[in-house]
Nucleic acid binder design. Structure first.
Lengths: 362, 362
DNA sequence: CCGCCGGTTTACGACGATGTATGTCCCTCA
DNA sequence: TGAGGGACATACATCGTCGTAAACCGGCGG
């Protein structure tokens, strides 16, 4: 039914192999022949069969992207960037949702996604304790996010510590001294390097550097990181009667909830309480007031991760090159919630590049 | 390198075909043989090669989903639902972004996505004038969204007219009479059936039914539908000096901008101005105030669309069954912005089902 | 004891593209 | 003039799976 190379070959009066050579831009095809073949291809509407190509070459031209949930803004934007980066290289992307299911994540890591040449994996339930799993991975894999460091695979992530520190230093520069942080995770031995602990570390460093006394009561444990949880935590904070004049939320989602809670309690942002988030999701410049945030460099993360994955794919399964670690440059985005431009909708956002912070061990 | 059926067959001392029969649950395999084969499969860690299977069977087990941009909340949530619905049926999803590029959309429609068995397509730049393109589509295709009605393909969409009407009737029930609408598109001959015109129609119907005079100056033309545009339109409206006590925005994105603009101008929501959006994106229950909206039935849309596509795939390319049209049931979600529960974060949202509205011609 | 039957398994080839080896033609240089 | 080489094209085999047709086997009725 479908048009094959054979059909094209007959019309163009050449062998199927010559058609293949034309399609794949191989050298040593006479211009006249090439033209004749292309004409035949256009005439018949020939399209290469990817399954056959995949079978023969061992490549599918498809990569996988595994995230917890696409409906979380952060992952949707990550997927957007990854798909765009892959498209530039002529690759398609199969998106898989793990839904916070640990078994599912392990299964994926063990077997990969069918039909793909490699996988970009942003786990949620795996920790450094699962590092050993990675040793048996037999397909190209690039890890995204913060959960597993020091594994045997490539890893693309962000400057959690220094970016968080920059956020808090910004609050301090506004004269704030009683800075709460929302989103700490209970200390888990195995997840010392999760994004929560890393960002908390940045927070503490900033306080210490400014000589501000560290009040553990201002570190609010919140898990998971949904907006409702952020609101709940902010309400607890307000009810506690503790004095505070700024909040650093470990994600923008948490910040959205916190903004609501502050509004309900009649605390003015940023006058009474300055707020800054982390992730710079699209919505954050549209909240009331617009939300200051850390832009973690999503485009750079996507671009680098796809690039690394493509290299691994091209090197082949056999190659055992050492794992690489890349941390994307971040930006501090100052908006109304921490005293940026007070009005005017397409809020002029001050940017403070964190590119130089790439040196740091954040 | 990879383990094949042949390898399994040797270990299990059967023919490759028998392995195939076991893998595919074919009848007439002796239990003992089956057990021996499964043991061998487990032992060797055999996994079927999808390219080969695809080549042989003509199916890839992958469907495509084409949307304008994943970073728009509506499409991210749609993709989330589609991927989940496909996963239930053992299918993977390749997500393609058209980026509002008309050429790209046409190209996709003409050729399909490589590596897939069928396509769910949510166009942005195509209109009813492109209906003819669909006549030449030679792969399973299900259209999503409102742009092209009456084409030769299956189509899953929402009750735009009746849902919009329900939204406006809700505002009227609050005693509002000067109801502005943001998001009208310039009347384009070819797009009479776009979501904008359909929703505007619902708006007018509601006004007419309530005997409220229709003031064309309250219909604000806005395109595209980004939040910034919503804010701009709301500011224009305020500046115009026209009296109004409610706004219906044709999407939640527009509403986000409108809420900002109202806030800047010191108009209280919902006391001075009630606001309702359309789409019920995740963020809308977290805005300040939380946003009333129309839930268009995303899960139902995704579920139905995937189901229809699977049927088309199973029927084969030859079958020329008549196109089907499905409109998902909608819900009216009342939140603070139109007088719902005034405080309390997980805002108790009144739901008014629009399931019965499926009868209507919305 | 023969032939037939149904359950079970196997041999073979084809899906479509492409790497390898082989061949042909023509041009150049000794 | 003939050897050598480059440009171009072809034949064949192969990737892993699965449909088709045919073979095998033990048991049963005649």
């Amino acid at each position: 039914m479908a048009v094959t190379m054979r059909d094209v070959a007959i019309v163009a009066r050449v062998s199927p192999k010559t058609v293949s050579n034309v399609v794949n831009d191989h050298p040593n095809v006479h211009p006249d022949t090439r033209a004749r073949v292309q004409q035949a291809i256009a005439e018949l509407g020939y399209r290469p069969n990817h399954s056959a190509r995949g079978l023969r070459s061992g490549r599918t031209g498809v990569i996988g992207l595994a995230v917890p949930e696409l409906k979380q803004a952060y992952f949707a934007e990550l997927a957007d960037a990854v798909i765009a980066a892959a498209a530039k290289r002529g690759l398609s992307v199969i998106v898989g949702q793990l839904g916070g299911d640990r078994e599912h994540e392990i299964e994926l890591l063990t077997h990969g996604l069918p039909q793909t040449d490699g996988l970009l994996f942003s786990p949620e339930r795996l920790g450094t304790e699962d590092r050993d799993l990675l040793a048996y991975v037999d397909f190209p894999l690039v890890m995204l996010g913060e959960w597993i460091f020091g594994g045997p695979t490539d890893h693309v992530t962000m400057h959690n510590v220094s970016a968080a520190r920059a956020a808090v230093e910004h609050l301090i520069s506004l004269g704030r001294r009683r800075i709460a942080v929302i989103g700490a995770h209970p200390e888990e031995e195995t997840r010392q390097l999760g994004p929560s602990n890393l960002r908390i570390q940045g927070y503490r460093e900033a306080l210490a550097a400014a000589g501000i006394e560290h009040d553990p009561r201002l570190e609010l444990v919140v898990a998971p990181w949904h907006p409702e949880d952020g609101a709940e935590a902010a309400r607890d904070l307000i009810r506690s009667g503790l004095e505070f004049d700024a909040i650093f939320t470990l994600t923008d989602s948490l910040a959205l909830g916190a903004l609501r809670a502050l509004g309900e309690a009649g605390r003015a942002v940023p006058d009474d309480v300055a707020v800054i988030g982390y992730d710079n999701i699209a919505i954050s410049h549209l909240t009331v007031p617009s939300l200051s945030s850390i832009d973690p460099g999503r485009a750079e993360i996507a671009e680098t991760a796809v690039g690394m994955l493509v290299e691994r794919i091209e090197w082949g399964a056999g190659s055992s090159r050492p794992p690489r670690l890349h941390k994307a440059a971040f930006d501090l985005i100052v908006r109304e919630s921490s005293g940026g431009a007070a009005a005017g909708m397409p809020a002029a956002s001050a940017r403070k590049s964190g590119a130089t912070a790439q040196m740091l061990s954040g």
